[in-house]
């Protein structure tokens, strides 16, 4: 479990490897299976996820601790977070399109998909459940983003290899992808205990 007594580096490692958002926590799976058919797609999506997770972490932390808690409106957190993240993604999309065209080319079409990626919203909720301070929240968000990248790119590489493998007809496509995910998840379970986490 992640908490405030750990230093930011340990939180990063824990979020990235030991509690990998895709393979151990089962969050953001729609994009994991939907966008992992080629490495190129998964790289674009990963960039977008890292970028938005960090921004969403900062903004949701500020809104929760400086607006919702003082005003005693904690029950509005679900609605507030999802609307904030949706707005944030829109603003980011416009900003990147105008000022960073190469980056927009790499991750542009994936940005709108991020709004409904549960990994992002989950980070915002988990930061509050774990009661993390701002610095630790950012470390947590960054770790989740990097963990997402690691898992989806490895998975896409393996799936590209599977294209040419002789697989029984009934298992082609998604069923075999699930078996693959299961084996990767097993491998990530092996990180448990690293640095005593």
């Amino acid at each position: 479990m992640i908490d405030n007594t750990m230093n930011p580096f340990l939180i990063f490692i824990s979020a990235c490897l030991i509690n990998n958002i895709l393979l151990i926590k089962f969050l953001g799976l729609c994009s994991f299976f939907g966008l992992s058919s080629s490495i190129k797609n998964s790289v674009g999506m990963s960039l977008a996820v890292i970028f938005v997770t960090i921004m969403a972490t900062v903004v949701s932390w500020i809104i929760f601790h400086l607006v919702l808690v003082p005003l005693n409106l904690v029950f509005l957190r679900t609605a507030t977070f999802i609307l904030t993240i949706a707005t944030l993604v829109q603003i980011e999309e416009m900003f990147i399109k105008k000022y960073l065209p190469p980056l927009y080319k790499a991750m542009g079409i994936y940005l709108p998909l991020i709004t409904t990626n549960c990994a992002i919203l989950a980070v915002a909720f988990l930061n509050i459940d774990y009661n993390l301070n701002l610095l630790n929240s950012i470390a947590h968000g960054f770790g989740v983003g990097v963990g997402y990248t690691l898992a989806i790119i490895l998975f896409a590489g393996l799936r590209e290899r599977l294209m040419t493998a002789p697989i029984p007809k009934a298992l082609q496509g998604y069923p075999v992808a699930f078996f693959l995910a299961s084996l990767m998840s097993l491998a990530f379970l092996g990180f448990k205990g690293l640095f005593g986490l």
Binding site: L23, I24, F26, K169, A170, L171, Q172, G173, Y174, P175, V176, A177, F178, F179, A181, S182, L183, S185, L186, L189
Partner: peptide
């Protein structure tokens, strides 16, 4: 976690 992936993979395989 791996058991979850395996179970749904098997169910989908049977359905297909």
């Amino acid at each position: 976690p791996p058991g979850g992936f395996i179970t749904i993979g098997v169910l989908m395989g049977i359905l297909t």
